[in-house]
């Protein structure tokens, strides 16, 4: 439990760092950020929107510290400000639906990629030089060299446009009403999600597989694996309980860095497929200079990544008695 407590403290520090970065980034820019924003939206922006923009970022009169406190107070009240591009809709209302789409798409595909990659890694190491090792490993290395979004473009081009297997763009058929009880709607959601889902899985699988394979090879040379075999245990038990359970631990530790990378790539994949998730929203916000939306999306993504890491830590504690 001390381990989990320590990790939780760290995540709180990290979340606070992200919030603080969010506050300082605009202030580190050359020139006055308020002037910058004015220049960006000259003549196009409602004066009320301008006021709300200032307030959201704490650009009120007074010293920096006071601005920071104002900013924090707003944040903890759940006040992320009003969107500029769809003024005066509160940012939080725009984020809600896109967060749900992202959690479903990226959450599901990342977990699936982790599981499939880990399993393939286990078998690749168990039968070293065998089929999985010789077929999947080179493929994974080649695919891993391409940018995520480029794979997405190729998938979209081939399966969406040339062969027309799947619908392109958006998360469901926009002519339909959102109704989760309706099977036609559900099947539309599934059809729309298949291409981005497969893209993320294809691109993310290689890293997990390679990592797990190398950990496994290390663990397989350990005496406790040899002894388990000598004891007469079944191959299945040796492979899973003795080798894989130990080999997955470094994978879970490395989850943090990999997850940030995978999520970053997946967000851009959303853009290619015009999938209305957080990545799409973030990039739309950047293109439309919708700063409140941009900042809020960044914070929410960060918090989601931290939460996923905490989940990985809990898994770690469940698997390794030494962390308990």
């Amino acid at each position: 439990m001390r381990f989990l407590f320590r990790r939780l403290t760290f995540y709180i520090v990290a979340a606070f760092a992200a919030i603080t970065l969010n506050f300082f980034i605009p202030r580190m820019m050359v020139g006055d950020p308020v002037q910058l924003m004015f220049a960006q939206f000259q003549g196009r922006l409602d004066p009320r929107a301008m006021e709300s923009l200032k307030e959201t970022f704490g650009f009120v009169q007074g010293p920096l510290l006071q601005q920071y406190i104002t900013y924090l107070t707003n944040l903890f009240q759940g006040n992320f400000g009003l969107s500029v591009s769809s003024f005066p809709v509160p940012v939080i209302e725009l984020i809600g639906p896109s967060l749900a789409w992202t959690v479903r798409l990226i959450g599901f595909s990342t977990i699936l990629a982790f599981i499939i990659g880990t399993i393939l890694g286990v078998f690749a190491a168990w039968r070293r030089g065998g089929g999985i090792d010789n077929i999947f490993l080179p493929i994974a290395s080649v695919v891993g060299a391409f940018p995520f979004f480029w794979i997405a473009m190729v998938v979209l081009y081939l399966f969406g446009l040339v062969w027309k297997w799947f619908p392109i763009g958006h998360a469901y058929d926009v002519s339909m009403q959102v109704d989760w009880g309706n099977p036609t709607f559900l099947s539309s959601v599934v059809q729309h999600s298949l291409m981005p889902l497969c893209t993320i899985i294809i691109t993310a699988i290689g890293g997990w597989m390679l990592g797990m394979r190398n950990n496994m090879i290390g663990v397989l040379s350990q005496d406790y694996v040899t002894m388990a075999q000598a004891k007469g245990l079944s191959d299945r038990r040796v492979m899973l309980v003795y080798a894989a359970r130990n080999a997955i631990l470094p994978s879970l530790t490395g989850f943090a860095m990999s997850l940030g990378f995978v999520v970053g790539g997946a967000l851009v994949v959303e853009l290619v497929f015009a999938y209305p998730g957080m990545g799409y929203t973030l990039l739309r916000a950047v293109q439309g200079r919708d700063y409140p939306l941009m900042q809020a999306v960044f914070l929410v993504i960060t918090l989601a990544v931290l939460a996923a890491n905490f989940a990985a830590d809990i898994m770690y504690v469940l698997l390794d008695p030494r962390a308990r």
Partner: peptide, 24 residues
């Protein structure tokens, strides 16, 4: 698999390495 341990078993040099750290 059937023969080993029933007739012939082995004790390794380092007990730390011979025991699976995640099993009791």
């Amino acid at each position: 698999r059937a023969f080993r341990w029933e007739h012939l078993s082995i004790v390794f040099q380092s007990a730390m390495n011979a025991l699976n750290p995640v099993l009791s």
